[in-house]
Design a binder for these strands. Structure first.
Lengths: 329, 329
DNA sequence: CTGAAAGCGCTAACAC
DNA sequence: GTGTTAGCGCTTTCAG
């Protein structure tokens, strides 16, 4: 079937293409009888407006680009779900881009996005590339950043204050006299880890102490598991903080085989968990960061920026700490 | 910064826009000196070709639409990764669409895709909507279906023969005299379940028996867990087959609390697992369907269809059964 | 209320 | 080799 255009419809309905354009755009000024005729023609021909041509004429593509780190969608999946649900409401399409350290040059992705003429871009990346954002800004593309507090001209953000979360938790432990606290520092989420450490440091400082325990583990469950098994042979901590549930599980599984009891001898808390947490034993105490909301709110913010110019700002989403079986109380 | 167009570049370089078009498309016929001048202008102005305009002129958007069920990216995530890696190589953009029963009308998504004028669409959906495929075909949009064997004019597919996988497994158990075998029938993956049952049925038939055990569970881990706990109070099976690792875990956790020993008293095998399988105890015996490859091969197939017309066909990807701790041997 | 025509940015013959 | 020009399909003044 040859793609039918607005001309075909116009001819069929015996009107000009301008009129057809008016009815597909729901303009009220078209006379009822004419409208019916056009709609009949559209129906008969199976006409669908060409979004590409509309995009050209309107300088507006109604699609926004989403940039995420590839790898485990276990975490980003929820963000995507939130984003898509909202994008559906506002009729935006989503162009998906992933960046993988070493594999995908982020600059290529940015280049691509610029060429695409998307209406905006939502970036969720652990390592926020100032430089890339600057380029996008130069082309005046509205940006919403997920996970980092940052704002500016045509730039908004949605984030969770990880630093404060960790600070509060560590603070409460220090109050109880627990001060052998360690943060597992994976290679994949440097930025988050930095914030976690900053939060812990602040809490320690408040107690006149200095925080310095971070355990650097290699990437991937198996590697970190092996590493941790070795590590725990001659290290012990009262509380371990990790970024992801998988890392927390690696710690727990590694110590289990050496006979360390969780939570009696070692407590464990992670920032982000997945649905698998409810299937695992012990169930991890976690902050359950609101992933779905991060996505949904980011998309909502984007639509606002697109509709009423100058709606920039950063939104701080709240978290809920949920103690489960890996902490004492 | 006002978006610079091909005209601006042409003026800056003192050539016609046709020449600029030639150099950005890498046509060799441009004289070296001219090319340099144009490239200098492009660089100076920060010009990026407008993909929308190119799309209109070429009737080719170099973007393909991906349709997946929303919800758990834990499984589809790998498919997406495979797809994106390949799409990067061939310079295609991915438009992400999700369909959720009850929330998103699939017909709306299809409508959207048609308007977008994508070059092709890759569909991964448990319930393959013949009707939707028919509509896409009508508009002559090349399709690659993931997970179902189907092909036709401009339609290809990439799948794993689940039916055979289950048949072989069940057959081997029947050979050993184990015949109290049940399949967990979740509400979410009807199509897969149908194939699993078909496979089991064939094996049973071969042994002069008839398969009839399917346990219908509700959606979601908690619901199914509760349901199964009730169920196992007065039902026992020697072997349980599930679609996802989460469902297998629900069975295991539900029976554990009643004192059923896995794998001694009950064996469990799932079709698809995730990275969490290596963290859980017991580790599930599984088929580990090649999710990443499904995505990668599907995308590769799509590029082939797009380049050389008439490359349709269906590709059967192989699986590997990996016995772990939930089966006896 | 409807039509004619210019223009969105780029490609692809077709001339020169 | 390089420029001219006619579209690609749609929106949007501006007339009528």
């Amino acid at each position: 079937m040859k793609r039918v255009t607005i001309y075909d419809v116009a001819k069929e309905a015996n009107v000009s293409l301008a009129t057809v354009s008016r009815v597909i755009n729901g303009m009220e000024i078209v006379r009822g009888e004419t409208r019916d005729r056009v709609e009949a023609a559209i129906e008969k021909l199976g006409y669908k407006p060409n979004a590409v041509a509309q995009g050209l004429a309107l300088k507006k593509t109604t699609t926004i680009a989403l940039v995420i780190p590839e790898a485990s969608f276990t975490y980003t999946g929820q963000i995507i779900n939130g984003l898509l649900d909202v994008s559906k409401i506002y009729k935006y399409n989503i162009m998906l881009h992933t960046v993988t350290e070493g594999i995908t040059e982020i600059s290529e992705v940015i280049e691509n996005i610029i060429k695409s003429h998307v209406d905006g871009v939502i970036i969720y990346s652990d390592k926020l590339q100032e430089e890339e954002i600057a380029i996008l800004s130069k082309y005046e593309i509205p940006i919403v950043v997920i996970g980092d507090k940052i704002s500016g001209h045509r730039i908004s953000s949605v984030y969770v204050d990880i630093e404060r979360a960790v600070e509060e938790l560590v603070d409460s432990y220090l109050d109880k006299g627990v001060d052998d606290i360690a943060i597992v520092e994976d290679r994949t989420h440097r930025n988050s880890i930095k914030k976690m450490i900053a939060g812990a440091s602040r809490a320690f400082e408040k107690h006149g102490k200095v925080f310095q325990n971070y355990v650097q583990i290699p990437r991937g469950y198996h590697n970190s598991y092996d590493y941790l098994q070795e590590y725990f042979k001659n290290h012990r901590h009262q509380l371990i903080l990790t970024n992801r549930d998988s890392q927390a599980m690696a710690c727990i599984n590694a110590t289990k085989e050496i006979g360390v009891k969780v939570p009696e001898e070692m407590e464990v808390v992670c920032l982000i968990d997945t649905k698998y947490n409810s299937m695992m034993r012990p169930q991890l105490s976690s902050f359950s960061l609101p992933s779905y909301d991060l996505g949904a709110v980011a998309m909502r913010k984007m639509t606002k920026m697109l509709e009423d110019e100058g709606e920039e700002g950063s939104i701080n989403l709240s978290y809920v700490y949920t103690p489960r079986q890996t902490t004492k109380q």
